[in-house]
Design a binder for these strands. Structure first.
Length: 847
RNA sequence: GCCCGGGUGGCGGAAUUGGCAGACGCGUCGGUCUCAAAAACCGAUGGCCGAAAGGUCGUGCGGGUUCGAUUCCCGCCCCGGGCACCA
């Protein structure tokens, strides 16, 4: 009597065997094509959740499938182990972040192992290990050497809850911290930056090369980089007496074609010139009021665009270079110091914000671009001088149209990237008062953090020499373990750490006490995996060039900008440093959807967490893995439902029983397909080849749910054959072939059961996971007879069974001869017959 | 406001160079087995009308193209996500 399907009797056994056999250890193999399959490495939060199960199950199927398809597969795992939660947990439970982190890694790794994921154990990295982070420091120094590191004072985002600054990318939604969702504050601080803006253009351009990325991720990155084409225009400032002073303020504009419509000029409240312009004048108090009001606005208000537009006149003027007209300088809160130059030429007829501001403060709104169908078009067409100072419009017009009241440019076509835009810019350029310019929204990456549990920035502040890098041969700067985090201490509270001497002059100096953003650790870990135990280099070029780029990257959409943009930047700098050839890190990207419960994200606070461990305890890892992939396509959100898991367990049990039953007969030897002549046998043989082909195609297209459906169909067909075909006529060789095929197909999804069946039940000596993927013969997959639907006037009236290779004429004739069809054609004349071979016949008839 | 993604049975979902809507699974109902239950197996299962044969409606809504539309086009509605005073 065959054993029942009891996953707990063998799942952990095989995990040990696989480890002992070194099944997942991989080295560079020039004889095979390589494939680098990578899931985003996890933060060791302690317990695994369904999102992990889903993410890593997807990767594991792709990795195992790729091995069976003959690739040399790199499939590593590691831990993104620095970060704030460890500090918070340490404070809460009076322990050390390191202790908490390493303990979590241990439990989480055990859970991953219990899921049966196929990771190369020799490549595991932990970003909080000095063997790893020392190379992060080395990279920092190399970036510094090449001019990509900068320490500067600027308005930065401060999270009051995390008590540290954040990069722009880490402020999400309505101006809240990406990690704790607290509204961030602006502070003027001196901080460390990576000059990611130097790569803005390439980061944007190369999105076009990423054919294997979801369109929306590329769109989000493109929007984030925010390239604008336009011009810089120099405006001469008038002195207090209203006479041109020779000094200029430059603005960036995407619409130089509207320059003749500039009726006022704006400065951001934080603009350094503001106080100089108004100090001691009658306008000072009004302007200061606006500046103070702007400073009080929270990031949330300002970012949402809901803050009311406030402004005050400075009493001063600039000269519009195209018409020498004097326009008043105002200060307003809707001008951002961070974008462009912090100064704006306001064209209220062409920009909605300027329009609203002009209406509020009674400033002129001279039209300069009018649409052909606008009532003003006829009135102003060809008018060079300004004759009209207001518009009968309810809002600004920013579309294309004819330039009016625009001097020698009048009559040209205006609008974005228009003829007029080019002509005005060229004219300015010829006079040295402007130039074509490109502006990016992307800011430099702020990488310093005022936190303890991170990678120390290898820099020294010397009162004599200034900022001095820690010399390469003195790396690593080791993170001291005796900082008392339970009292909220950071490195800045630890003189033993920061008191040092200057490497350049030898005098007393202070070591930098900020640590690096954890996103710096995750920006290059996939390079380290290629050569994880190298203690002389971050990684060797040869190994990196063998494995990189990652062929398939899998992770959450929440990193659409953050981690994925930073990693692309690192990879480009590495390439320019000659460290590796790849200019893009991830060739194909799969962003998996969230796992929810009753439409909500699972969280402890909502009390709706379904623990994967409980599911494994009840149904085994195989059922859980297969089920979470069966529930929905990987990129879609899914709602957890335990009943379905039970169903998956049933399917695996049926498969187990089928293979066990078939294996009871002695091995009949290889199948001769040509020997299968009976209808039932041929049908099963066809199904075996059809399904094999479909599972192969589906896995390649990430259609894991339909791949599993197809296996179910094959098992159903095999069961029907076993049940319905007369005992004497059944082919043992066919059944054996179908059983083995099913085991091979299911191996990436349910690796333990497949292994138990393969080795113990079917009696093969080696691992199923080293077997070649089963082949599908399209000739055998094709049916020799097909059923065709016959429609009369658009409605299916009959079915026709006919040879698959029947000619169109034969199909037409057979269809028109069917009794049902004749019945529906009675009294009608056939006007047209459409034949789609293999699909249907459509008869059109009228009275 | 702008940009993506989505809307298909009781549920998850399947089907797209336009060709039989609802594969596969869950659930439900009925049956076999059992003293009984569980497990397992078999069968039915979009709505409406009908005893049945069959008919008819049906892929968010309204139009259009076509022999034929879940699929293509036009105009909307709803849900989810991203961006948002970016000059």
């Amino acid at each position: 009597m065959a054993r029942p399907y009891e996953p707990h009797s063998f799942e952990e056994k095989w995990q040990s065997v696989w480890d002992a056999e070194g099944l997942y250890s991989v080295t560079e193999d020039p004889g095979k094509p390589k494939k680098y399959v990578l899931e985003m490495f996890p933060y060791p939060s302690g317990d695994i959740h369904m999102g992990h199960v889903r993410n890593y199950s997807i990767g594991d199927v792709i990795a195992r499938f790729s091995v069976m398809r003959g690739y040399s597969v790199l499939h590593p795992i590691g831990w993104d182990a620095f970060g704030l939660p460890a500090e918070n947990a340490a404070i809460k439970s009076c322990t050390h972040p390191a202790k908490w982190t390493y303990a979590n890694i241990e439990t989480q790794a055990a859970s991953f192992r219990r899921m049966g994921f196929s990771y190369d154990p020799e490549r595991m990295v932990r970003s909080c290990d000095v063997e790893y982070y020392r190379w992060g420091q080395w990279i920092f120094l190399k970036f510094w050497e090449r001019g990509f590191v900068e320490r500067k004072k600027s308005p930065v985002n401060w999270c009051p809850s995390c008590k540290t600054v954040l990069a722009n990318e880490q402020v999400i939604g309505d101006g809240v911290c990406w990690r704790c969702k607290t509204p961030v504050e602006k502070r003027e601080l001196e901080q460390w930056f990576f000059k990611i803006t130097e790569y803005a253009q390439e980061l944007l351009d190369d999105l076009d090369t990423l054919a294997g990325w979801p369109e929306r991720v590329k769109t989000m990155q493109a929007n984030w980089i925010g390239r604008s084409e336009g011009a810089e225009v120099d405006f001469e400032v008038c002195d207090a007496g209203g006479e041109p002073s020779g000094e200029t303020i430059t603005v960036f504009t995407t619409r130089p074609d509207t320059l003749f419509g500039c009726s006022f000029f704006l400065l951001a409240p934080e603009h350094p010139l503001v106080s100089a312009l108004v100090s001691g004048t009658a306008h000072e108090s009004d302007v200061q009021a606006v500046v103070k009001a702007a400073a009080r606005e929270t990031a949330v208000e300002r970012a949402s665009g809901e803050a009311e537009k406030l402004g005050a006149f400075t009493g001063r003027f600039v000269v519009n270079p195209v018409n020498r007209q004097k326009v008043p300088i105002w200060v307003s809160n809707y001008v951002l110091m961070e974008y462009g130059t912090g100064a704006v030429m306001a064209v209220p007829s062409g920009d909605q914000r300027d329009f609203e501001f002009a209406r509020k403060y009674g400033l002129p709104i001279p039209p300069v671009i009018v649409a052909e169908d606008d009532s003003l078009h006829e009135k102003l067409s060809g008018t060079r001088e300004r004759v009209m100072d207001d518009v009968p419009w309810a809002q600004a017009y920013d579309g294309y149209g004819t330039m009016v009241q625009s001097g020698q440019f009048t009559g040209m076509r205006g609008g974005k990237a228009s003829e007029g835009m080019k002509a005005v810019t060229e004219w300015l350029e010829s006079r040295g008062q402007g130039r074509f310019s490109i502006n990016f929204r992307l800011r430099d990456w702020l990488i310093s953090r005022q936190r303890y549990w991170g990678n120390p920035i290898p820099a020294i502040h010397c009162p004599v020499c200034g900022l001095v890098p820690v010399p390469e041969d003195r790396l690593p700067v080791v993170l001291p373990m005796d900082v008392d985090i339970t009292r909220g201490e950071t490195l800045a509270d630890h003189p033993e750490f920061y008191e040092t001497t200057c490497p350049r002059c030898g005098g007393p100096a202070r070591r930098e006490t900020d640590t690096m953003d954890t996103f710096t650790c995750s920006s290059w870990y996939y390079f380290r995996y290629c050569d994880a135990r190298n203690d002389a280099q971050a990684f060797s070029r040869a190994r990196a060039d063998y494995w990189m780029p990652v062929d398939q990257y899998i992770g959450g959409i929440e990193h659409a900008i953050l981690h994925l943009l930073y990693s692309r930047f690192f990879t480009k700098v590495f390439a320019d440093m000659g460290l590796a050839a790849a200019r893009e890190p991830f060739t194909n990207l799969l962003t998996q959807g969230m796992v929810k419960k009753d439409g909500e994200t699972m969280s402890k606070s909502k009390g709706n967490v379904v623990a994967p461990e409980d599911m494994v305890a009840k149904y085994g890892a195989d059922a859980l893995r297969a089920f979470i992939l069966f529930m929905a396509p990987p990129d879609k959100d899914l709602d957890w439902n335990q009943d379905g898991l039970e169903g998956m367990s049933r399917f695996l049990g049926r498969l187990w029983r089928y293979v066990s039953d078939v294996a009871e007969a002695s091995d009949p030897g290889p199948l001769d397909s040509a020997a299968i002549c009976d209808t039932a046998g041929k049908a099963l043989l066809r199904e075996r080849h059809r399904v094999t082909g479909k599972v192969t195609d589906d896995i390649e297209a990430f259609g894991f749910n339909t791949a599993i459906s197809a296996m179910m169909e094959l098992l159903n067909a095999a069961g029907d054959y076993r049940r319905d075909a007369p005992a004497g006529s059944r082919s043992a060789a066919l059944e054996r072939d179908v059983a083995e095929t099913l085991v091979l197909l299911v191996a990436p999804f349910a690796p333990h059961m497949a292994e138990e069946l393969w080795r113990e039940v079917l009696g093969h000596p080696g691992s199923v996971h080293r077997e070649p993927w089963p082949a599908s013969d399209p000739a055998l997959a094709a049916a020799d007879e097909v059923e065709i639907a016959v429609q009369v006037n658009g409605k299916v009236r009959a079915k026709l069974t006919i040879a698959a290779d029947a000619s169109e004429d034969a199909i037409r004739e057979a269809a028109l001869g069917l009794p049902k069809v004749l019945e529906h054609l009675e009294g009608l004349t056939v006007r047209k017959v459409v034949v789609v071979p293999g699909k249907l016949v459509s008869v059109v008839a009228t009275a």
